[in-house]
Design a protein around this nucleic acid. Sequence first.
DNA 1: CATTTTGTTATACGCGCGGATAATCGACGC
DNA 2: GCGTCGATTATCCGCGCGTATAACAAAATG
Lengths: 218, 218
Amino acid sequence: MQPARRLYRRESEENRRSALISATQELVAEGGPEAATVRAIAARAGVTPGLIRHYFQTKDELTRAAYRALMDGMTAKGADALDGVGALPEERLAAFVAASLRPPVLDAGAVVLWAGYMHKVRSDPELLAVHEAGYLAYRDTLQGLIEALPRKAKPGQTRSEAIACNALIDGLWIEGSLLRTTFQPDEVVAIGLRSVAAILGVELTAPPVPLPDPGKTL
Amino acid sequence: MQPARRLYRRESEENRRSALISATQELVAEGGPEAATVRAIAARAGVTPGLIRHYFQTKDELTRAAYRALMDGMTAKGADALDGVGALPEERLAAFVAASLRPPVLDAGAVVLWAGYMHKVRSDPELLAVHEAGYLAYRDTLQGLIEALPRKAKPGQTRSEAIACNALIDGLWIEGSLLRTTFQPDEVVAIGLRSVAAILGVELTAPPVPLPDPGKTL
DNA sequence: CATTTTGTTATACGCGCGGATAATCGACGC
DNA sequence: GCGTCGATTATCCGCGCGTATAACAAAATG
């Protein structure tokens, strides 16, 4: 009785791809890029290593897909935050900042994943393009929200302020994610809102209420 | 005439160790942790792979030493910035902030190195200790400089402000290092000083002069 | 139910990895 | 100068890596 060939089910391409991408992200988040070997990824996704090459020509391609998925997911979550909120500029800016400093954006796995791929981003033109697109989309949204505020700004001032707010949010995102236990719930959000308000010279005490998803008609 | 045995010079332990540590840091900065193999490190340091094991029992030990050296170097540079500067609180804080946002602290290699080791820091207790020591030293210095400012602060306020300033500086350090060409010289310093001043509600137009090292009696 | 298609597994290959050990030879005490 | 010591090199080992290819079987097709 030799070991029988492993049973399996055929799955849709979409299911397989997303499973492999998720497995890659999880492994990088847990143990860095060197932990995301093809064998480990396949095991995590519940398939055998060879299947990876059926959906991705090379491991690098899977890597790129995983990074792209990370960036897309983060920007999507940022956009979601602006969906249900009102039209008041202060309110919209506050919602955007708060969403960036709360789960699911605030997430240690995402930070480690982002950090683990940093050097690849610098050396791989395709990843660099993905990164810059995501980065600029975020900063543009931020700058647009700042420009909508009711105040007079000198030319060029908005750019500097957007850079500063972006840096502040990034820093809080990293520290808040990695040292989540060190902070009280929503303490990071409060600090972020207060600091952004100070940088921009506006009142930003608008509702940072988490509002527990009052609908979705589930 | 078979290939002769490689010529070599004996070096002090200190020289060898620092050469190996530097080589490790360079390689991680350039190509991430997976590029820093023992063979590549040895080649970069001008020795053969076996020698690494003469000075470090394992590669992990060398890795830890390299990370420790990075953190020590950065905090040392931060402390240096406070050496020659006057006693005015605003001036000292400004000097500290500016030094953190200028070379040699502002350095893409340092950022990538820091990012590349992030997941190891989370999983290795020894590295975690090194990291926290460096991190807290920085934040304590920052908080001390903030508390020295001539103003009245509510209890607990300083902590929040130190976290915010720290996050802002971190974010600017990362973006300024990675996108150095995107910014004008000292633009990041200017943004950092202006934003820290806004967060703390103080004037901080104190001299961010680079002062080209007017002495050292070399 | 027979046939084709192709998603999936199984197996193998070559390479570079980190680590261990033995041989060598540069420097230093005497 | 001559030994002696140990810093340094040379060589080897087993393993896990990414990749390639063939065998297989689950579903689709008629």
